[in-house]
Design a protein around this nucleic acid. Structure first.
Length: 576
RNA sequence: CGGGGUGUAGCACAGCCUGGUAGUGCGCAAGCUUUGGGAGCUUGAGGUCGUGGGUUCGAAUCCCGCCACCCCGACCA
């Protein structure tokens, strides 16, 4: 591509609303433009990255035995009404009406449609397993779109669906897709972790998230440094040893006057004496199905509400208001405690190890000292707290480390959640009619563009991984010298003949401008050709992620560059 | 949905408090010079000041409504 003919509108200044590197750089470098909140145009460079990513995805999906097809983005309401999601999806669903008043929505995901297709077309176990996927725009009216392409209301997704005869076969399909996903994310050149995750409203039994590590990721995840354990903090567990505290050491419970002391921090500084947060207990009141539930965690821990909801087997839990807390405990907020609490009590298992804890006394301005689980209160013991950096790995007890991640992919075994409800059945080899067992597998394709930039950027611009860079080599001829231009053109043509995707900056711009734009656009290899190099018969080859350039003779330049492209994970075009 | 903020030239902003015919930088066009890290000088084009109403002799500026966008929270396969 010739830069002079290319549509690459770059900007010197960062757009005022851009908050993350990917947002700012994709706009500045001319990859994308915003149309509305969470709605973007992909410009030619952005489109090339998208194509690179989706090509890798298609390649691996096909290799895994999935077949590409396409469902509509606009969907009649009947399908979501049948599954119940017309209501449960709530305001996140973009709804519309046709001229006759018929109701439709824009597809936020497509389980219902595919299930309908399968119930109409699949009758026998002989037609299974089946694995279908599409790459298509999804629409979700997010409460708050943000960070450019990271959370959009319209976004491109690859979604695959598997159909199997039973749970075992479905698990096998899931395993195949998991391997395909690993290949995809590795080929994209992204640093990622496969983490255990909450299956959420999809209602699946098994699921895993593919989290792209990035400073600005929306998700918090933990990963073990020694073993392969990794999990979203929503579900992450901490190491726990079943050891009992020694009874003999317990002190006698005593009430202490603690005026105006509400938080754990205030308790620590008020009582002093080397009291540490882990020797206190935090008692949170939740309202679940209209009834109060007290969750007790160690003072240095936080309640994991996803875990709490799972323990209670409910969709969601709600923190009680100040008024409700007062009604339930008889004390103002900050003085709740498990001793003599009248109501359901859920206790984090780490609490059972705390000796002589300080807790609220359910009386305003009063706390108890020397409170011990088992003696002063009981309650149901569960894993309840939000895992933190200090926790041990549940598998090997080495230290867990905290990361931020961007959810690039999510795979689920759905089971018969949709097939049973919608009557997608088949006849097995024993002549029995059974619901198909489903799995679904998503990748946020447009999101991955931004995720890659989040992971690979510096002060000057983007540093694309070779596999998804819009062009592999960026040629920068310097000056208006005719010989330089001719030599550069020669190199450009030779690279193209060798199957390398090259961009040549043939604009009449000063060297500084070309260098700045080259750094901003972020192609992995820059080849600088100037008068100086021409005299010595050399071009300057600089990798975007390296500090220093390398002088390479024109005689070996093309071989050098093609080898470098391949070494960095790039593929050469078939030019035969 | 709650709280906060911003809408003025393609981009980033000043002007608003204290009302009086719209400004700066970058970018764009032309000319001369310059040419290995976003050049200098000269000239020029470009704006219904988000939108509707109100106050006023007069509104970018004051008042009210609406819209859009951003941030924090809530929510979110």
């Amino acid at each position: 591509m010739r830069y002079s003919k290319a549509f690459i509108p770059t900007q010197k200044e960062a757009p005022k609303d851009a908050t993350t590197p990917s947002h700012s750089l994709l706009l500045r470098a001319g990859y994308a433009r915003m149309v509305g909140a969470g709605i973007y145009e992909l410009l030619p460079l952005g489109m090339r990255v998208l194509t690179r990513i989706s090509t890798i995805i298609r390649d691996e999906m096909d290799r895994a035995g999935a077949q590409e097809f396409l469902m509509p983005a606009i969907v009649p309401a009947e399908y979501f009404k049948e599954s119940g999601r017309w209501d449960s999806f709530g305001p996140a669903l973009f709804r519309l009406k046709d001229r006759k008043g018929g109701e439709y929505h824009l597809g936020p995901t497509h389980e219902e449609l595919i299930t309908d297709l399968v119930r109409r077309e699949v009758r026998s176990y002989r037609q299974l397993p089946l694995n279908l996927y599409q790459v298509q725009m999804k629409y979700r009216d997010e409460p708050r779109p943000r960070a450019g392409l990271l959370r959009c209301r319209e976004f491109l997704m690859k979604d695959a669906y598997t159909f199997d005869v039973d749970e075992a076969a479905a698990t096998e399909s899931y395993g195949i897709m998991r391997e395909a996903y690993k290949r995809i994310f590795s080929r994209l050149g992204l640093d990622y972790r496969i983490v255990e995750a909450d299956s959420g409203a999809m209602g699946g039994s098994t699921s895993a998230e593919f989290q792209v590590l990035a400073q600005n990721g929306e998700d918090a995840i933990v990963a073990c440094g020694s073993c392969d354990y990794a999990a979203n903090v929503e579900v992450a567990e901490a190491h726990f040893k079943e050891t009992k505290q020694t009874n003999g050491k317990m002190g006698a419970r005593e009430k202490v006057h603690t005026p105006g002391v509400h938080s754990i921090g205030e308790v620590i500084s008020f009582l002093g004496g080397g009291l540490r947060p882990e020797s206190t207990l935090k008692s949170m009141i939740y309202i679940v199905d209209g009834k109060p539930v007290m969750a007790v965690v160690r003072g240095d821990h936080e309640v994991n509400e996803v875990k709490l909801a799972r323990v209670l087997d409910v969709e969601e839990v709600r923190l009680a208001s100040d008024k409700e807390v007062k009604k339930v405990t008889g004390a103002s907020v900050g003085f709740a405690g498990p001793v003599d609490f009248d109501g359901r009590l859920i206790v984090d298992r780490a609490v059972t190890h705390v000796l002589d804890a300080v807790v609220g006394a359910n009386e305003t301005d009063q706390h108890y000292r020397n409170v011990n689980h088992g003696r002063d209160f009981t309650g149901d013991v569960h894993d309840l707290h939000l895992v933190t950096e200090g926790d041990g790995c549940p598998k090997c007890n080495d230290h867990l480390r905290l990361y931020r991640g961007i959810e690039g992919g999510h795979i689920f075994i759905l089971g018969t959640h949709y097939s049973a409800k919608m009557g997608a059945t088949f006849v097995n080899d024993g002549g029995k009619s059974l619901p198909v067992v489903m799995g679904c597998y998503g990748i946020g394709v447009t999101r991955l563009i931004a995720a890659a930039v989040e992971q690979y950027n510096d002060d000057d611009g983007i540093l694309w991984p070779m596999a998804i860079a819009p062009y592999q080599v960026h040629i920068a001829p310097l000056g208006n010298d005719g010989e330089v231009a001719a030599k550069s053109e020669e190199v450009y043509q030779a690279l193209r003949a060798a199957g390398v995707d090259a961009l040549i900056d043939d604009r009449k711009e000063r060297p500084g401008v070309k260098f700045k734009d080259a750094d901003l656009l972020g192609m992995p290899i820059r080849v600088t050709i100037g008068k100086r190099g021409l005299a010595s018969g050399e071009a300057e080859v600089k990798e975007r992620n390296h500090k220093d350039a390398e002088a390479v003779s024109f005689d070996t330049l093309i071989d050098h560059l093609t080898a470098l492209v391949v070494k960095r994970g790039g593929r050469l075009l078939d030019v035969s």
